[in-house]
Amino acid sequence: MNIFRLTGDLSHLAAIIILLLKIWKTRSCAGISGKSQILFALVFTTRYLDLLTSFISLYNTSMKFIYIGCAYATVYMIYAKFKATYDGNHDTFRVEFLVVPIGGLAFLVNHDFSPLEILWTFSIYLESVAILPQLFMISKTGEAETITTHYLFFLGLYRALYLMNWIWRFYFEGFFDMIAIVAGVVQTILYCDFFYLYVTKVLKGKKLSLPA
């Protein structure tokens, strides 16, 4: 464990909690892409199956349960509890165009052709593009609630911190995982446009509205 990975995990946890509290407190999921949240639940489910097979540490196991629990709770709130506030008309990204090719890619490019490893690879690839429906929805509505921009900021920051973690681990431990690194770079690049808007607008107290 190093400082980049720890702050990365805490940033990820903060994002997940911010979103959960936003929906719970405002009793509304307006502006939130349910499709992205389904993809994240799928990412955690396919990545954390090793909960059943191996124990690494209390931290590792507890964080995985928290991530999975919050992800499904968020999906439940969007599609069941606060379904009336779900903005389906703007959440129209064709996720099948992501899931199917990525499923194929996970079979072709992986470290080991075993079920757990292919599912882990699938979850790594999927996570890198899972935010696209959410970013697409914001581009369609042309704006985002400020709390949603904080959610996206911490979510984007977490993988950027993981990139630093991998530089650290390569330098000090000689460890590196090309699949996770390439997917992590793609994932972080997808947030660059948002990071620019977040820093130039939201941090200056303005609302995040795309070029109107």
Binding site: D9, H12, S54, I56, S57, N60, D112, A180
Partner: peptide
């Protein structure tokens, strides 16, 4: 074993 350690990231 080594592979277990590698998958110690979330």
């Amino acid at each position: 074993d080594e592979s277990e350690k590698d998958k110690d990231e979330l």
